[in-house]
Design a protein around this nucleic acid. Structure first.
Lengths: 190, 190
DNA sequence: ATTCAAAGTTACACAAACGTAACTATTAGA
DNA sequence: TCTAATAGTTACGTTTGTGTAACTTTGAAT
C-alpha cells in the first residue's frame, strides 16, 4: 500500500560507488547522489539520516559480497585453482581496495554507523582469515614461498588492480602478464 | 622593505601534502591549511587565487623534485644499481603515486592553473622517458624480462609503496621482501 | 471509491567554505 | 623618522551542502 520507488537499492549502491571513486569520501554529497538518481535530495533522507549511515551500509554490502565470493574461491581444491579464481574475483570488481580505504574514514556519527563499522571490522577479519587459508594452502603445497610475509603476498595481489592499463592491452593479456609477474617475478631466471 | 613572513613555501607545501593525504583533493580546504600554518585564511589568498592554483603549483614542485631524483637514478651505471636506487627514491617519499592521481583531478579554473597543468603533463612525459630508459637498460642487460609490458613493470614497482605494512615489519626487511617478490615472484622456482 | 502508508517534493534555517575589500602591522631604506 | 611595500587580519556577502518540517502524490488493500 505504497507508492512505487523511483530508485532501487541496487541503483543507489551503483551510483554511490561511482561517486565515491570519482569524488572520494569528502567529495561525496547527497546533492550529487540525488542528481544521479534523479530524485530530490530530501528523498534520500527518508532512508538514511546522513551520508555516514548510507556509506557504512554500502561498505557493509560491498564487503559482504566480496566475502561470499572469497568463500567460493576457498572451495577450489588446489592452491593454483584458488589463485586463478581469486584473480577472477579481484578483476571482476576492480575497486574493492580503494573502497576499503574509504570505509576507514567514516566517523561514527551515530549508533547505527558505529554498529555498521563494527560489523565491517568483523567482516574484514573474516576476509583475512579466508585469505590466510589461501596462503597457508599455497605454502603447504610448496608452491608459495614461505619466506615472504602474508602481508606482502596479499598486498601485491590486491594492488595489481590499481595499475592503470594505459596502453590498451586486452584484458586477458593484461591479467595474464600480471599473474606471471606475481608468480615468477620480472627478472630473467639464472 | 617588508614584513617577515609567518610561513615559508616549504612549510606550506609540507602542510599541503599532509592535508592532501589525510583529506583527499575535495577535502582539502584553505580553512584547514590556514589553521595548520597558524595564519588567517585570507593570508593565503595573497599568494594564490584559489586552491586549484595552489595545488597545481604544489604538484609541479613535487614532480619536478621527483624528476630530478629520477635523473640521478639514471646516472647509475648498471641496471641493478638503478633498480636499487629507484626503490630508495620511491620509499623515501612514500606518497608520489597517490599525489599524481590527485593532480589529474584539478580543474583548469584559470590561465595559471591551465599552464601549470600543461607543465605537469610535460614533466610526466619526461618521467616516463626516464623510466623507459631504465627498463630498456634492464632488457638490454638481459636481466629484465622482455615479455612484460613496461606499464606493468612500472605499475608494480610504484604500487608497492601503497601496500600498508600493518604487521610492523622493519623498513629494511619490508623493502627487501618487496624487491625480492618483484624480481623473483612469490612462487617457488621449478 | 475511499483510505492511508510510504514515496517523493518544496521550502526553510543553519553551517561551512569561498573570495574580496578595507583595514592594521612590520620593516627596509630614503 | 617618515615612507612605501609587503604581510597579515577582520569583516562581509556569496555559494554550497546539511537536515528537517510541511506538504503532495501514488497505489494496494479495504
Amino acid at each position: 500500500m505504497a507508492r512505487e520507488r523511483k530508485f532501487s537499492n541496487r541503483e543507489l549502491y551503483q551510483a554511490t560507488k561511482e561517486l565515491l571513486l570519482s569524488h572520494g569520501y569528502e567529495g561525496y554529497t547527497f546533492t550529487l547522489l540525488a542528481n544521479q538518481l534523479d530524485v530530490s535530495r530530501a528523498a534520500i533522507y527518508k532512508y538514511y539520516e546522513n551520508k555516514e549511515e548510507l556509506l557504512s551500509e554500502y561498505m557493509l554490502y560491498e564487503l559482504t559480497n566480496f566475502l561470499t565470493k572469497l568463500k567460493e574461491v576457498n572451495k577450489e581444491k588446489t592452491f593454483l585453482d584458488q589463485f586463478h579464481a581469486l584473480f577472477d574475483v579481484i578483476f571482476d570488481d576492480m575497486s574493492l581496495y580503494q573502497l576499503r580505504e574509504i570505509g576507514i574514514q567514516i566517523p561514527k556519527v551515530n549508533k547505527k554507523v558505529a554498529m555498521n563499522k563494527q560489523k565491517i571490522s568483523h567482516i574484514i577479519t573474516e576476509l583475512y582469515t579466508s585469505l590466510q587459508h589461501f596462503i597457508d594452502l599455497g605454502r603447504h603445497e610448496k608452491i608459495l614461498r614461505g619466506d615472504i610475509p602474508s602481508n606482502i603476498v596479499l598486498g601485491m595481489i590486491f594492488q595489481t588492480v590499481n595499475i592503470p592499463n594505459t596502453e590498451g592491452i586486452s584484458h586477458q593479456d593484461w591479467v595474464n602478464s600480471m599473474k606471471d609477474v606475481i608468480c615468477n617475478g620480472m627478472f630473467i631466471n639464472e
